[in-house]
Design a protein around this nucleic acid. Structure first.
Lengths: 336, 336
DNA sequence: GGCTTTCGTTGTAACAGTTTCATGAACTGT
DNA sequence: ACAGTTCATGAAACTGTTACAACGAAAGCC
């Protein structure tokens, strides 16, 4: 509704200055820029081209750009599925790179004609997402969760399925069950640890903190973990991996060391794509439907758009999708 | 350079009508629209917002959308690597979906403020790419090649490395060497067959057409191929796969059938990502650097932009990147 | 046939945002 | 104190888009 000229009138400025402030032109006083930006946020300014509203949605990386992962690809696929019916276009973005020095994030999005963002983040960049949401820009975070109630989130529920995974291993008579989690903390991964603890406690198993491993969420991490436990006096007989790639690395390395899977070691992994079918033996894994996650993310964003007009505060959306434990060939009974 | 008002003046129309024609508004006579579009193409019309040129580049799927593959993801990663320095944004697009009925492709791109496109295509949609290029819209096709000299192409050279792959198998004393290629024809895959034939002929091996298999480029395709050759009286002892996923499917299925790799069967695959490290044993494969392909694609497009001003015709760019044969654990000498 | 109505097409004008150029204020050097 | 420089801003000119009016041709009605 509010145009640049409306903002200008309200702030006693010229449209030119407002435009410059919004575009991060250095030729504008910092104090004036701040006033313009706060006004733009308060009045829910949306840029238009001519008389048409811009129709871009961003797939934005908040932390390190993990584009290239199957998870992200599937996410985008789901997003575009739903988007094109509404005439939206998807723009790929790295917020840290795209933002100019001393520019607000919402400001950067508006400059690019973006109406809303689907945020991908790593744990260390969570604060960045909170900042964007706090600026009042319509955004949905995928795959993380926040204590902050004001942030819209779409993610999978890994707590329940983590319990299922560990229960599955206990049912198979394993007694020394390890868990391997990404070394950088992340609420979703904390859930997986919580699921592990829950299940162990509920089934009356002792929890040995030395069996909770922090590793790099890459193939390398799994390889190194196998080397570590191979040197242990009484090694675990089953490992639950909270990430896809290290699980695969571990399966390879275990076989290289001469262990047979699942006879000498059972492994439960995590899979967003079809990696579980590409290894030998096929991998028992917790599966999340990343494509569906993308679809739901767009629907959440769309809801946010329609809410934005009516009511401003406390309109956060939270969608939690179930994940499933699929049993394949990498887990078996412990016979020793 | 040319604005909507320039076009209007030249065509004796109002700016409004030109804008409508360019935006596929139905309220414009078909004859008038045709005149506007040809003029827009001739004058190399580029839309601007205010006085600023739009800075969008499309990653466009011409055929079936294969977004979700590691190859595409890596391609995008490479593209964005180079793009952001120039202030460009990447827009994901499905041309068939995005184009309105009776709308030109270049027209659709311009409507969305897109300056140039990187085209991903399947073999059956090659004609679509030729059409876009014929309309004079700056575009680069990735991964295909064309007889048509006027189309800019960035691709890997799979001919040489296909020869290397087959030579490698011949060096290992294999005598019955099969090749498995995607069942839909595609110039890049024809190259791989040509490389196979070249090498076999040069080394004095008989070419048995029954050892040239057409399969689906999915994991399933590889699985079914193994079942087929398991039933053959004198089966091949080595297979060269021209696609990543069936190679992996085949390795799995072969081991399921009880064959040991590489003792009972050698396999050379194809890899755009890191799949070769995720299977057991690690897979000998022809590797292409998809990320680099993306970088080069942007550079080609950038070159096209700068050429466009000076000279109109015959400014097609062709970049062919080398691929490499990496030897791992899935190939070994034939001892029978 | 003459009139009105309707529909399709086009132009005018008002609007969106951006940038060039000019203007004035504040600061700096002598 | 005065000239020169730098910085911030506004007016104006220019993008592209759409609401509204206007025009003309075809169709319907008496």
């Amino acid at each position: 509704m509010a145009s640049i000229r409306d903002l200008a009138k309200q702030l006693n400025l010229s449209p030119a200055t407002v435009s410059r402030a919004l575009n991060n032109n250095p030729l504008v006083a910092p104090e004036v820029r701040r006033r313009v930006l706060t006004a733009a946020n308060k009045l829910q300014y949306v840029p238009t081209i001519g008389r048409r509203e811009t129709m871009n949605i961003a797939f934005a990386y908040a932390g390190d750009r993990s584009i290239g992962s199957p998870f992200d690809a599937a996410l985008m696929e789901g997003l575009t599925d739903r988007m094109e019916s509404g005439g939206f276009d998807l723009v790929i973005l790295d917020v840290k790179r795209a933002v100019h020095p001393r520019e607000t994030f919402s400001h950067m999005f508006r400059r690019k004609g973006i109406r809303g963002a689907v945020l991908r983040t790593t744990s260390e960049a969570k604060g960045l997402c909170e900042q964007i949401a706090a600026e009042g820009f319509p955004c949905v975070v995928v795959g993380e969760h926040f204590d902050n109630e004001g942030i819209s989130v779409v993610r999978s529920d890994s707590l329940t399925s983590s319990r299922d995974a560990v229960n599955h291993l206990i049912d198979l008579k394993h007694e020394k069950i390890a868990i391997a989690v990404n070394q950088v903390d992340d609420s979703d991964h904390l859930d997986r640890i919580a699921g592990y603890r829950d299940s162990m406690a509920q089934r009356g198993m002792a929890i040995d903190d030395r069996l909770i491993f922090r590793i790099a969420a890459k193939r390398e991490g799994g390889i190194q973990l196998i080397r570590r436990i191979a040197a242990m006096p009484d090694r675990p007989t089953a490992i639950f991996f909270a990430d896809p790639l290290p699980a695969i690395g571990a399966m390879m390395e275990a076989q290289k060391v001469g262990w047979s899977i699942p006879r000498d070691l059972s492994i439960v992994g995590f899979d967003d794509a079809e990696l579980r079918f590409m290894v030998h033996p096929t991998m028992t894994a917790i599966c999340q439907d990343a494509r569906e996650l993308g679809r739901v993310a767009f629907e959440a964003l769309d809801l946010l758009f329609s809410q934005k007009g009516r009511e401003l505060q406390n309109s956060a959306v939270r969608r939690i999708l179930p994940t499933q434990l699929e049993c394949h060939g990498s887990t078996g009974p412990w016979l020793a």
